[in-house]
């Protein structure tokens, strides 16, 4: 049973169809990538899942039941892209306050905060103010406040922006650990290499609509262009018309070839062996998510245009 299911969700603003009929479902314990260019409707979608906005149409099913913001938001942790903390408030008090707002008791919250602060080497921060922290330190603190109440669903909007590689890794490890212990993570970003590394499933939205949905593997398979990298000492001098591939490039002692429609990789190998070539390597080249993203989003206007919405 999926932890979160969106059914035909719609949210129209006066000049934009921010979310226009999006459905998706997320399995528990998965790390789910929500991708899309700026202004695609990701934030609006997230705000509906966190109970900040009500959808105009459609349904949100959370943990098997219709989503009830008042009771369910205690089981969701949300870290918005624009980080927000009280600048002048002491860090310990602030974390305690935010945890209590999520429904934790004071003693429970204190205990958990101490654990996390030790884990993230933040013990000395308790009586400091947020304005004393660097941007990266604030980021770590924000992450702690997001996951402290052990939510079933964590929504992270660009969680690594502003973090150095060491702290990025620290948070990445925590995200993996949370997923392993059954927490579902929605991860919204434009940084495709991180998505490839972390996410098991992705959805790409553009102009308020879902244009891609699947596991990273599936998506890559769907968008592959039958490209292979062949390492050979020498390609046959001239390719005759019935060769099963064409050469599209060559780099570092390897040739990039596209297999013609109707042929299989084995046909290529067979052909090369018959021609007496010596093969060192033979790899399929799958497109990167970055390429797929650009390919799908390219051609649509980079900034969303305002339009009249009749509702």
């Amino acid at each position: 049973m999926p932890l979160l299911e969106l059914q035909n969700l719609k949210k129209y603003f006066a000049t934009q169809k921010a979310v226009d009929d999006i459905s998706l479902s997320i399995e528990p314990g998965s790390i789910f990538g929500l991708l899309g260019p700026n202004g695609a409707g990701k934030t609006t979608l997230i705000r509906m899942i966190t109970g900040i906005f009500y959808p105009d149409e459609g349904q949100i099913i959370f943990d098997g039941k219709k989503f009830d913001p008042v009771n369910d938001i205690g089981r969701i942790g949300y870290m918005p892209e624009e980080r927000g903390l009280y600048k002048k408030m002491k860090i310990g008090e602030q974390t305690l306050y935010l945890a209590q707002l999520k429904g934790l008791t004071r003693s429970d919250a204190t205990k958990k905060i101490k654990e996390w602060f030790i884990r993230f080497e933040m013990e000395s921060w308790w009586n400091k103010k947020v304005e004393d922290l660097s941007k990266g330190m604030q980021q770590k603190l924000q992450f702690v406040t997001t996951v402290l109440h052990e939510p079933k669903l964590i929504i992270l909007d660009e969680p690594f922006s502003g973090l150095d590689p060491v702290n990025s890794n620290l948070i990445k490890e925590e995200i993996y650990k949370l997923a392993q212990s059954g927490t579902t993570v929605i991860f919204s970003t434009h940084r495709m290499e991180q998505v490839e590394e972390i996410c098991s499933q992705i959805v790409l939205v553009n102009k308020g609509q879902k244009i891609l949905d699947g596991t990273v593997k599936e998506v890559k398979q769907n968008f592959k262009e039958n490209l292979f990298s062949i390492g050979v000492n020498q390609l046959p001098g001239s390719l005759n018309g019935n060769s099963p591939f064409e050469v599209v490039g060559n780099k570092e002692q390897a040739f990039v070839v596209r297999i013609k429609a109707g042929s299989k990789p084995n046909d290529v190998l067979q052909y090369l062996l018959q021609q007496g070539s010596e093969i060192h390597s033979f790899n399929e080249i799958l497109p990167s998510l970055n390429d797929i993203f650009i390919k799908l989003v390219e051609g649509t206007p980079t900034a969303r245009q305002f339009q009249q919405v009749n509702n």
Binding site: T50, G51, I52, V70, I73, G74, I76, Y78, M79, P80, E82, R83, G84, L85, Y86, K87, L98, L101, K102, T145
Partner: peptide, 13 residues
């Protein structure tokens, strides 16, 4: 302007 509002309204109305 601190953007804390968005964090808090994901916990309370």
């Amino acid at each position: 302007t601190n953007r804390i509002a968005e964090v808090i309204v994901s916990s309370v109305k």
